Simulated assay, not measured.
Amino acid sequence: MKWKRPLAWIAGAAVAAGIGGFVFAAAGFAPIAASSGHWAVTDWFLHFAMRRAVKTQSLGVAIPPDVSLDDRALVLRGAGHYESGCAPCHGTPTTQPSVVVRQMTPKPPHLPPHIPSWEPEHLFWIVKHGVKFTAMPAWPALHREDEVWAMVAFLRRLPDLSEAEYRALAAGDAGSGNRLRSHDDPIGAVVAESCARCHGAEGLGRGAGAFPKLAGQTEPYLLASLRAYAAGERHSGFMEPVAAMLDDAALQRLAAYYAAMPAGAAEATAAGDRALGERIATRGIPERGVPACVQCHGPKEAPRAAVYPSLAGQYADYITVQLDAFANGTRGGTPFAHIMRSIAERLEPAERGAVAAYYSALAP
């Protein structure tokens, strides 16, 4: 047949091209140097393929019904991480990526002008999964989609921010780090550079629920939590990278630093059925195997184990997020986390919110 000869030529050419490509690579001639950059056509094709892949593979992504990307607390959570984890490569509203980053191939884009070309679902997919053959990593805790949506919430705000607005969101009261840096103990610099941006120099958190209050928690609990983050046993794309960079001595000093801070005031404005929350906290739900929360988390007259956190006066939004993460199995934690996991999954969402509202209104 006439078509067989052309087909044989095509097959032969394909085999020859494959062999030629292998010989080219085996001989070490492939242009892998980052300094050589990409040809314009190569750069176009790679970006075209990436954009098409993101738009296709994000088709199943939907903004959860309980997530508002305009929620200031969600924006704050994303802002704190962007400053330390993203800005060095992607810049800020008025600063470009670092000179080292600009020598990469491909070069990470200066993000503010590019964000409007992506839908929230696209941004979610990129932040969660990363992009192969670039410096863009996947999210360190893939199952913590609540954190990924926080990043999306902030990224949507990024293009419209002035530098002052950006600093207010991303740094908060971390400027008090000048005072901390003057301390003889070098842990003050760690607090100033990494911790105060989200938790505040005084450990009271920022944004009324964006971040937890650390002040007044026991040193054993804080240290156990930091160690769990550092070991990858408590899952958070925000906290794991920070804790993993510190040695155990630094973790101990951090725990002692925040444990020594005075606890803040109660939050009496959280939505939720506080009466229901009080019943669950003080009596539990025996028919469902839910014990009373006060046995481990207080308040009660008898002493309680120092490895459990105090919940009185903690932000309701933070408690709710943690209970939800326990319930869906995405949180992890200290060696005692399995206890909370079995309890949280037996509570309805409204009940978890009620417990959070009750505890947030209690004086620490």
Rank of each mutant, 00 (worst) to 15 (best):
R5L: 12
P6Y: 05
L7N: 01
A8C: 03
G12S: 10
A13E: 02
A14W: 07
A17P: 01
I19M: 13
G20D: 03
G21L: 14
F29K: 12
I32F: 10
A40H: 11
V41C: 05
L46P: 02
H47I: 14
M50L: 12
R52S: 06
K55V: 04
P65K: 11
D66E: 10
A73M: 06
A73V: 02
R77G: 12
G78D: 06
Y82R: 04
S84P: 01
C86A: 06
H90M: 05
Q96I: 02
V99P: 02
M104A: 14
M104R: 08
T105A: 05
L111G: 01
P112R: 10
P112S: 13
H114R: 15
E119L: 15
F124D: 13
V131F: 04
F133C: 03
P137I: 06
A141G: 06
L142S: 14
D146L: 06
V148D: 05
V148T: 12
V148L: 09
V148K: 09
L158F: 05
D160F: 02
A164I: 09
G172L: 00
G172H: 01
D173Y: 08
A174L: 00
L180T: 02
R181I: 03
S182Q: 11
H183M: 13
G188R: 10
V190L: 07
C195P: 04
A201R: 01
E202M: 04
E202F: 00
L204D: 00
R206L: 14
G207V: 03
A208W: 07
A210H: 04
L214H: 03
E219I: 02
L222Y: 04
S225Y: 03
L226S: 05
R227D: 11
A230C: 05
G232N: 09
E233A: 14
S236G: 09
F238W: 04
F238V: 14
E240K: 07
E240D: 04
A244S: 14
D247A: 09
A250Y: 00
A255C: 07
A259S: 15
A260N: 03
M261C: 09
A265F: 06
T269K: 08
I280N: 10
A281I: 09
A281M: 08
E287I: 13
E287L: 10
E287A: 12
R288A: 14
G289D: 09
V294Q: 12
Q295D: 05
G298C: 06
G298L: 13
P299R: 12
A302G: 10
A302Q: 15
P303I: 01
A306G: 05
Q314P: 12
V321N: 00
L323T: 06
L323W: 09
G329F: 07
T330E: 11
R331G: 08
T334F: 11
S342T: 15
Y358N: 12
S360C: 11
